[in-house]
C-alpha cells in the first residue's frame, strides 16, 4: 500500500459519501444518473467476486463490502425510495448504457489476463468502470446547472483514478515485476474522459461561478 493508492481509495470513498450526503440531505437525486449508479454497482459486483475466496487484508475486505453495499443502496434509493425516486430526471437520463455493458464485456472476452470467468469479469469491471461516468456527464450537460454536491461527487470520482495512475507509476518504479496493463490503460482512458469536466470545474472554481457544462 502506498500513499497514492490510499489517497485514491479515500477520494473514492469521499465521492460516495458526498453522493449519499446529497441524496440523504436533500432527499433528492436530481442531477444524478441512475444508469451510472447501476453501472458502478455492476462494476463492484463483477470485480469483487473474490471477496469470499481470496483474503488480501482487513482493509481490502472492508472497502469491498462498503463499495458494494453503498452502490446497491444508492441504486435502491433512486429506484424505490418513495421520496427520492420522484426527483429522478428520468427523461434526461437517456444514455443507452446497455451498449456500454455489451461493448466492454466483448472487449473483456478478447482482452484479458487469462481466459477464466473470474479474469474475464475482472477485465470487464475495469473497462466498464472507465466508461461508467458517461451517462452522468451527459446528464450534467443536459441539465445545465450543476448543484455543488453533484459537482463535487463527479470531481472526487475523477480524482480517485488520477491518484491510482500515480500509484501504478510508483509501483512500476519500485516493484520489479509490477505490470498491470489492463488497469493502467483503462485508468488513463477513464481519467481522460473527466478531462473536460475537470477543466470546466476548475474554471467555475476560479471565477467562483456556478458550474455550467456547455450543452
Amino acid at each position: 500500500m502506498n500513499i497514492f493508492r490510499l489517497a485514491g481509495d479515500m477520494t473514492h470513498l469521499l465521492s460516495i459519501i458526498v453522493l449519499l450526503l446529497k441524496i440523504y440531505a436533500t432527499k433528492s437525486c436530481s442531477g444524478i444518473s441512475l444508469k451510472t449508479q447501476e453501472l458502478y454497482a455492476l462494476v463492484f459486483l463483477a470485480r469483487y467476486l473474490d471477496l469470499f475466496t481470496d483474503f488480501i487484508s482487513v482493509y481490502n475486505t472492508i472497502m469491498k463490502v462498503v463499495f458494494i453495499a453503498s452502490s446497491l443502496a444508492i441504486v435502491w434509493c433512486m429506484r424505490l425510495h418513495p421520496l427520492v425516486k420522484r426527483s429522478y430526471d428520468k427523461e434526461l437520463d437517456t444514455f443507452r448504457h446497455y451498449f456500454l455493458i455489451g461493448g466492454t464485456f466483448v472487449l473483456a472476452l478478447v482482452l484479458n489476463e487469462k481466459f477464466t470467468l473470474q479474469e474475464i469479469l475482472w477485465a470487464f469491471s475495469i473497462y466498464l468502470e472507465a466508461v461508467a461516468i458517461l451517462p452522468q456527464l451527459v446528464l450534467l450537460q443536459r441539465s445545465g446547472n450543476v448543484d455543488n454536491l453533484t459537482g463535487q461527487y463527479v470531481f472526487f470520482l475523477g480524482a480517485y483514478r488520477a491518484f491510482y495512475i500515480l500509484n501504478w507509476i510508483y509501483r512500476y518504479l519500485t516493484e520489479p515485476r509490477f505490470t498491470r496493463w489492463i488497469a493502467c490503460v483503462s485508468g488513463i482512458v477513464q481519467t481522460g474522459i473527466y478531462a473536460d469536466f475537470f477543466y470546466y470545474y476548475f474554471i467555475s472554481w476560479k471565477n467562483n461561478s456556478k458550474l455550467k457544462l456547455p450543452a
Binding site: 493508492r5 481509495d9 473514492h12 473474490d50 481470496d54 488480501i56 487484508s57 481490502n60 472497502m63 469491498k64 463499495f67 489476463e113 475482472w122 491510482y164 500509484n167 505490470t179 498491470r180 488497469a183
Partner: peptide, 10 residues
Amino acid sequence: VQNEVVKDEL
C-alpha cells in the same frame, strides 16, 4: 508455477 498476480487493488 508462475505465481498469480494477486489483485490487491480495489
